[in-house]
Simulated assay, not measured.
Amino acid sequence: MLRPVIDADGAPFWEYAGRGELRVQACAGCGELRFPPRPCCPHCQSFASEWRRVSGSGRVWSYVVAHPPLLADYAELAPYNVVVVELDEAPRIRLVGNLVAGPGEPLGSLPAERLRIGARVRVVFDDGLPRWVPERT
């Protein structure tokens, strides 16, 4: 499995994810939520920041189903989906991940015909990686 490249600005995101928490960076000056993490607030230019826990609920903003040829580490898993999820608390924040049938389920466990833009989803964690599952209504 490919692992993310972790830089200094994004390290707290991955530390929290490893604990099963979805947190995003927020400006400690104006409160603006931002992702990807960065040293300076694009809204007020403050360098003060904190990490706020978010619900992990959102909606599928976009998606693609990947087919070979792919990176070698993923080729045998294809086809699988990659989704862009818009968070409820911060509609301008969109996180990329995979939509799976349930917690602990593998890539490709959700049939492609079940993917829908606008579908309600919630975050789950698999070995420190955020994944998304359909929200039960």
Rank of each mutant, 00 (worst) to 15 (best):
L2E: 14
R3P: 08
R3N: 12
I6T: 12
D7R: 09
D7W: 13
A8V: 10
A8K: 08
D9R: 12
D9S: 07
D9H: 12
G10E: 03
A11C: 09
A11K: 14
W14S: 00
E15H: 12
E15A: 12
Y16T: 07
Y16R: 09
Y16G: 10
R19Y: 15
G20Q: 03
G20S: 03
L22H: 02
L22M: 09
V24Y: 02
C27D: 01
A28Y: 10
G29C: 05
G31W: 05
E32Y: 15
E32W: 09
L33N: 03
L33K: 00
F35H: 04
P37Q: 02
P37Y: 04
P39M: 07
C40I: 14
C40E: 14
C41V: 06
P42N: 04
H43I: 15
H43G: 15
S46Y: 10
S46W: 11
A48W: 10
S49H: 09
V54R: 00
S55R: 05
R59L: 05
R59F: 06
R59V: 08
V64M: 06
V64Q: 12
V65Q: 06
V65T: 09
A66H: 13
H67S: 14
H67T: 08
H67D: 10
P69A: 09
L71I: 13
A72D: 11
D73Y: 13
D73K: 14
D73A: 11
D73G: 13
E76I: 15
L77A: 13
P79H: 00
P79T: 02
Y80L: 02
N81T: 06
N81P: 07
N81K: 01
V82Q: 02
V83H: 05
V84N: 08
E86H: 08
L87F: 03
E89I: 04
R92Q: 13
I93K: 04
N98F: 04
A101E: 02
A101N: 05
A101V: 04
A101M: 03
G102K: 10
P103D: 15
P103V: 10
P103R: 10
P103G: 04
E105A: 13
L107V: 07
S109D: 02
L110M: 07
P111Q: 13
A112S: 11
E113Q: 14
E113I: 10
R114W: 15
G118I: 04
G118S: 01
A119V: 05
A119R: 11
R120I: 07
V121Y: 00
V123S: 06
V124P: 05
V124H: 01
F125N: 03
W132N: 00
W132Y: 01
W132P: 00
P134Q: 08
